[in-house]
């Protein structure tokens, strides 16, 4: 035997083996997540200097108060919230609709599920650049479809010229790319509902609408809440599509909080301010997620 035999109580043995299993993952988690988070929190209270040897000046909450007065932070926050409140319901409603249809098809369920899931696994970078081209003016694909095929507009739309229209490609991409993810989850939830409930409802003469409202939705409610929370977190983290489609333009009107944070941290090397912005977003996400879970889930579901 390599190890000397020491008698340990059963409990100590369990504790030790538990730690042995937990440790590798925990170490990675601490090094790559907890440590950077603490470091970023520390940075947010400093005027953080670029050169590794230079002293960093402690400035307390100055970065945070600056964020509250920064007009572009207000624009970014408004756009981030707008993105979330449009794309989250957009994704959920369409995902539910497609999940419902795919659940009903007799054959090719896997085919459709895969088909709708493809956008989820495509690269954000690739599709963002594609969307940039689709919405090009005056000769982009979207203008071509609207103008020459559907005849719904008279003039090509200069999508990236007006703040209002420049955000549309970002929203459309956000919804399109997210449908598959929610759909797969909804589909799994739909399949857990016992068929007997629908049969019983049919005997009682319930309409399809009534079945949806009284059986389907209540039974998949925990899934809906879970999806809502996850999508909301995703919505607040919108970044790649904004940077690649508009890069915040025209004139910073489509900036979102993370693109602005990136700009501050990596173009202006204001790491302290960037970290403060990141923490503001984190606080908002944690608060909203907590409230959603607290109020939308029933007590018995939480425990």
């Amino acid at each position: 035997m390599i190890f000397p035999s020491v008698r340990l109580s059963r409990r100590s043995q369990q504790v030790i083996s538990a730690w042995v299993f937990i440790l590798p993952g925990l170490l990675l988690y601490v090094i790559f997540l907890i440590y950077p988070i603490i470091k970023a929190l520390q940075m947010s209270f400093y005027e953080w200097s670029v050169m590794p040897g230079d002293p960093n000046e402690f400035i307390g909450l100055v970065n945070y108060s600056r964020a509250l007065r920064d007009p572009i932070v207000a624009v970014s926050m408004r756009n981030t919230v707008l993105y979330t409140i449009i794309t989250v319901p957009g994704q959920m409603i369409l995902a539910f609709f497609f999940a419902f249809l795919v659940d009903k098809v007799a054959r090719g369920k896997i085919f459709f599920r895969t088909l709708y899931y493809i956008p989820v696994i495509t690269s954000w970078v690739v599709v963002s650049i594609l969307f940039r081209y689709f919405f090009q003016s005056p000769k982009g694909l979207i203008n071509h479809i609207l103008l020459d095929i559907l005849h719904v507009i008279q003039q090509p739309i200069a999508w990236f010229r007006e703040p209002a229209t420049a955000f549309i490609p970002i929203l459309v991409l956000g919804i399109w790319k997210g449908i598959g993810w929610s759909m797969v989850i909804f589909l799994a939830a739909l399949q857990t509902i016992p068929k007997e409930f629908y049969d019983a409802a049919a005997i009682d003469g319930a309409t399809a609408w009534r079945k949806l409202i009284s059986i389907t939705l209540p039974l998949i409610r925990p899934t809906l809440v879970f999806t809502l929370v996850m999508l909301m977190i995703g919505g607040f983290n919108v970044f790649i599509s904004v940077v690649l489609i508009t890069n915040g333009g025209p004139a910073q009107s489509t900036e979102v909080i993370l693109s602005y944070m990136y700009h501050q941290a990596f173009d202006y090397i204001d790491f302290g301010y960037g970290a403060a912005l990141a923490f503001i977003v984190a606080i908002i996400i944690v608060t909203v997620s907590y409230l959603q879970i607290r109020f939308l889930r029933r007590p018995e579901e939480i425990s």
Partner: peptide, 9 residues
């Protein structure tokens, strides 16, 4: 060309 304000071209 509007690319001076819109970019992308």
């Amino acid at each position: 060309h509007p690319t001076i304000v819109e970019g992308g071209l």
